[in-house]
Amino acid sequence: MLQWVTDGGLETDLLFHHGVDLPEFAAFPLVEDSNGRKLLTDYFVQYAAIAAAAGAGLVLETPTWRANADWGAKVGYDAAALDRVNQAAVDLVRSTPTDVPLRVSGSIGPRGDGYVAAGTEADEAAEYHAPQINAFAAAGVDVVHAMTMTGPAEAIGIVRAARAAGLPVGISFTVETDGRLPDGTPLSAAVASVDAAAAPDWFGVNCAHPTHVSPGLDGGDWQQRITTFRPNASTLTHEELDAMEILDEGDRPLLRSSTEALLATLPSVTTLGGCCGTDASHVALLWGVQQA
């Protein structure tokens, strides 16, 4: 049963609807600028309103999907600066005005590109992602959420690092149009292998249209582990989306109907929002509420 509203495609919303320049698709530098903080707060407030209208709680992701060492270095952030901005991002999200229960989720992205298969060394991934997770812990985040994971190994490493920091953690995989991860792993096998090596608190799927996720479902008990869904608006492939210079906001009736069909097979999903190409209007549509 749905209980928590979460946000949509932050980066695509900022890029295409607000004209914000995001070098390397990184939103986290906005946290350190007064105009950027206002823009982010205004973005989050939209989802607080949706949650209030839906009578649901609110899960907000920190704008830190790119705030790791490799991507941070490309926009001029060293380790100390990343520690500072990751903690500041938690504080910013925590300050969002809302009258509904709020969970602050520390967003972690893959070390590489979200559409390209990741490495195979879980211990290396744990060491790599630990500084960002430790910054979240220092700032008092409620949960760590690794999104757009492309293979099991990096997910296992992130879970290990979160456990070492004493934090709850969720893992969201992305899938291609055939319901398999970018590295070719079936979604069912990815969940099973991560659960066997380092079980997270929950799993999710993000950055894929519902019609792409459905082929990866087989009705097995493993599906009960999926509690979060954040679909893309578009039915295009990841490769096609990467090449797009305009935003594909998708077929909204199809997004709603296919999401409803998917959720009927995933009754364990409690948290629903959006990903690339979606904004607050898409999430309001999925929740069946009027956007203020």
Rank of each mutant, 00 (worst) to 15 (best):
Glu239Thr: 15
Ser258Glu: 14
Leu241Ser: 07
Pro110Ser: 14
Leu272Ser: 00
Glu127Gly: 12
His238Phe: 10
Ala117Asp: 08
Phe25Glu: 00
Leu15Gly: 01
Thr185His: 10
Ala280Gly: 07
Pro186Tyr: 07
Leu236Asp: 11
Val20Phe: 10
Thr270Val: 08
Ala135Val: 03
Gly57Asp: 03
Gly166Arg: 06
Pro97Met: 13
Thr259Tyr: 00
Leu247Val: 14
Pro253Ile: 15
Leu2Asp: 06
Ala80Asn: 06
Lys74Val: 04
His238Asn: 10
Asp178Val: 13
Leu10Ile: 05
Tyr43Gly: 00
His18Glu: 04
Gly55Trp: 14
Ala49Lys: 12
Phe16Gly: 02
Thr96Ser: 08
Lys38Asp: 04
Asp91Ala: 15
Ile158Val: 15
Leu167Phe: 11
Pro101Asp: 15
Tyr77Ala: 00
Pro101Met: 13
Thr120Asn: 14
Gly106Cys: 04
Ala118Met: 09
Ser257Ala: 15
Lys74Ser: 11
Val159Tyr: 03
Asp279Val: 01
Phe173Thr: 03
Ala67Ser: 10
Asp195Arg: 14
Val20Asn: 01
Lys38Ser: 12
Leu254Met: 13
Leu217Ala: 09
Ala51Asn: 05
Val289Cys: 08
Ala51Met: 07
Leu10Trp: 07
Arg225Met: 02
Leu272Cys: 01
Asp248Trp: 13
Leu217Gln: 09
His209Cys: 08
His238Ile: 11
Thr211Cys: 11
Phe203Ser: 00
Ala208Glu: 03
Val191Met: 05
Thr150His: 06
Ala53Pro: 05
Glu260Ile: 06
Leu39Ala: 08
Thr237Ala: 11
Asn86Lys: 02
Thr150Ile: 13
Gly112Phe: 11
Leu266Phe: 03
Ala192Met: 07
His238Trp: 13
Gly204Asn: 02
Pro152His: 06
Thr271His: 00
Glu240His: 11
Glu24His: 14
Ala261Asn: 04
Val169Ser: 04
His17Gly: 02
Met244Ile: 04
Ala197Arg: 02
Ala51Val: 10
Thr150Arg: 05
Gln132Trp: 09
Glu32Cys: 07
Ser281Leu: 09
Gly274Ala: 10
Gly109Met: 09
Val169Asn: 03
Asn35Leu: 11
Cys207Trp: 14
Ala292Phe: 12
Gly273Pro: 05
Ser281Thr: 12
Gly36Lys: 04
Ala48Thr: 07
Gly157Met: 08
Gly273Glu: 00
Ala190Phe: 11
Ala280Lys: 08
Phe203Arg: 00
Val5Leu: 02
Pro110Thr: 15
Val90Glu: 04
Ala135Lys: 01
Gln132Pro: 10
Glu121Trp: 10
Asn206Gln: 06
Val45Ser: 05
Ile50Tyr: 08
